[in-house]
Amino acid sequence: MRHTFVVLSLEAGIPLEQIQHDLGHESISITADTYAHITKKMRKKSKKNFRSTCPITFDKCGQKLFLYSENLLLSIH
């Protein structure tokens, strides 16, 4: 139940500090190390938020990573 509570809370955007308090943990590292895991839903939400605030596209081609927007092209090796 605690695991589910933490994951659902994080997916809902509740800060880890608040979850730590709700669980009564003395240290935030206990909460993060024990319960906090990144879910597919969280990854999708993070990507969507990033794309809406920073219109940069990432393409991986072999060992190179390309970042580009309207006025910028970077190649990272």
Rank of each mutant, 00 (worst) to 15 (best):
I28Q: 00
R2D: 09
R51Q: 08
K44Y: 05
E70L: 15
T57Y: 01
L65Q: 04
I76M: 13
E11W: 05
A12I: 02
A36E: 01
T31Q: 00
H25E: 01
N71Y: 14
K44D: 03
K41Y: 01
G62S: 13
A32L: 04
K45M: 06
H25A: 02
T39P: 00
T57I: 12
C61Q: 14
F66Y: 15
H37V: 08
G24Q: 02
K48F: 10
C61E: 12
S75M: 15
F50I: 10
Y68P: 07
S52I: 08
Q63P: 07
G24C: 06
T53W: 10
A36Q: 00
P15V: 00
S52L: 12
I76A: 10
S46E: 08
S46K: 13
K48G: 03
T53Q: 11
G13S: 08
D33P: 02
H37A: 07
D59H: 15
A12D: 10
Y68D: 09
L16H: 05
I14R: 03
L23C: 03
R2W: 06
F5I: 07
I56F: 14
T4N: 11
Q20G: 04
I76D: 05
M42S: 01
F58K: 15
S75H: 10
S75E: 12
L65F: 09
I38W: 04
R51Y: 05
V6L: 02
V6A: 00
T31S: 03
I28M: 03
K40Y: 04
G13C: 07
R43N: 04
Y35I: 02
L8A: 10
L72H: 10
T53P: 00
A36L: 03
K47Y: 06
K44L: 07
F50Q: 10
G62K: 14
V7E: 05
E11V: 00
A36R: 01
S69W: 07
Q18K: 14
E17C: 12
K47I: 00
H21G: 06
Q20V: 05
L74T: 04
H3Q: 14
D22F: 07
N71K: 15
L23D: 01
R51A: 10
L74E: 09
V7T: 05
I38Y: 04
Y68R: 15
Q20D: 07
H77Y: 13
P55I: 02
S69V: 11
I19N: 00
F58V: 10
D22I: 10
T31V: 02
Q20Y: 06
F50D: 01
E26N: 06
E17M: 11
R2A: 11
C54V: 13
I14D: 02
F66L: 15
H3L: 07
A32N: 08
M1K: 10
C54A: 11
C61S: 13
M1V: 08
I38Q: 03
K64T: 03
L72F: 14
K48E: 12
N71M: 14
Q18F: 12
D59T: 13
M1F: 11
K45Q: 09
S29P: 00
S69M: 12
R2G: 03
A32C: 08
K64F: 14
S69K: 04
T31R: 00
Q63A: 13
D22Q: 11
R43Y: 05
L8V: 02
Y68L: 15
I56N: 03
T39C: 09
K60E: 13
L72D: 08
I14W: 12
H37R: 13
S29Q: 04
I56H: 05
F66N: 08
A36G: 00
M1Q: 08
